[in-house]
């Protein structure tokens, strides 16, 4: 209860700072307009105008909320102006990429845990692969894959997969190695085969690590999908929405797309968290 109060206080403070910043940043335009028209504005009028500009430098929170409401609830879902439509495009490539990345990550982790050669050779390169700013070359990958004939969902999903496979590899390698020597010895006294040790000991004990890394992976997958939509070809999706907003100075549109993306990320991470709680409780591993 206390922590909820604290969170609400912080959020209220952020909103208050936002309003003050909006007045400060937008007032220049208002004053310029007034000076051009030769009118003197009172402080109250300036504030009122900064709250309701069409292309503000920083839109006030209520303008963003109003735009969100307008583009989600009041528009038909199939409309090109509906954020639900754009969010769905981004979501679908996020989920496909996340699934590809997770499966690839698990396979790689299983290989690393079972083969010493793979452990020694793949692990350093998996770490090095993350220092390559793939996000920065995402637009190029889209263009190149397009020219080979791969179009639509898959190129975007590929970027998401590349970003989400790494946390899964690291987490799963740690998780599959989590059983200690005692437990492994016990399995050996049962004369369990390698496969049985994997399915009955290693895999179950890796589950907490698996879910923790899935949370990171799905957030990364969403960022990948959004950036992959940035190249000029894309006209659908939250990333494209931001890009067109920045081309035409539609700041409110950028902010509402940003909030939609944040909402989507929160829902996805929350969903994985829910799945984690249910699974771990069923397996008797919940704390």
């Amino acid at each position: 209860m206390r922590s909820l109060l604290a969170v609400l206080t912080v959020v209220a403070a952020i909103v208050a700072i936002w309003y003050l910043a909006a007045i400060q940043m937008n007032s220049k335009w208002t004053r310029d307009q007034a000076a051009r028209a030769g009118i003197a504005l009172s402080f109250g009028e300036v504030v009122a105008d900064t709250m309701a500009q069409e292309r503000p430098v920083l839109p006030a929170p209520h303008q963003v909320v109003a735009e969100l409401w307008k583009t989600t609830v009041q528009k038909k879902v199939t409309s090109k102006r509906s954020l639900v439509f754009h969010g769905w495009i981004t979501l679908s490539s996020t989920v496909v990429g996340f699934l590809i990345g997770t499966v690839a990550g698990i396979l790689l982790a299983v290989g690393i845990v079972h083969s010493r050669a793979m452990d020694m050779s793949v692990m350093p390169w998996a770490i090095a692969s993350q220092t390559i700013p793939i996000l920065a070359i995402a637009p190029m990958i889209i263009v190149v894959l397009n020219s080979v004939g791969i179009q639509g969902l898959l190129p975007k999903a590929f970027i998401s997969a590349y970003l989400s496979f790494f946390p899964v590899v690291v987490g799963m390698v740690k998780g599959l190695r989590a059983p200690d020597a005692m437990q492994l010895d016990l399995m050996k006294t049962y004369s369990a085969s390698k496969g049985e040790i994997f399915w009955k000991l290693r895999l179950p004990s890796s589950m907490p690590y698996f879910f923790a890394s899935m949370k990171v992976a799905i957030a990364a997958a969403l960022v990948g999908a959004i950036v992959a939509e940035l190249p000029a070809g894309a006209i659908r999706g939250l990333g494209a929405r931001m890009l067109t907003g920045s081309y035409y100075g539609q700041t409110i549109q950028i902010w509402s797309a940003l909030f939609m993306a944040a909402l989507l990320a929160a829902c996805l991470v929350g969903l994985v968290g829910l799945l984690q709680r249910i699974t771990l409780r069923k397996m008797g591993m919940a704390q």
Binding site: V57, K215, V223, I226, G239, S246, L258, A261
Partner: peptide, 15 residues
């Protein structure tokens, strides 16, 4: 920390 903060890039470039 889990947000797509990269999305603020167009806004900050504008500012």
């Amino acid at each position: 920390a889990a947000m797509p903060i990269i999305g603020t890039a167009p806004i900050l470039v504008m500012w």
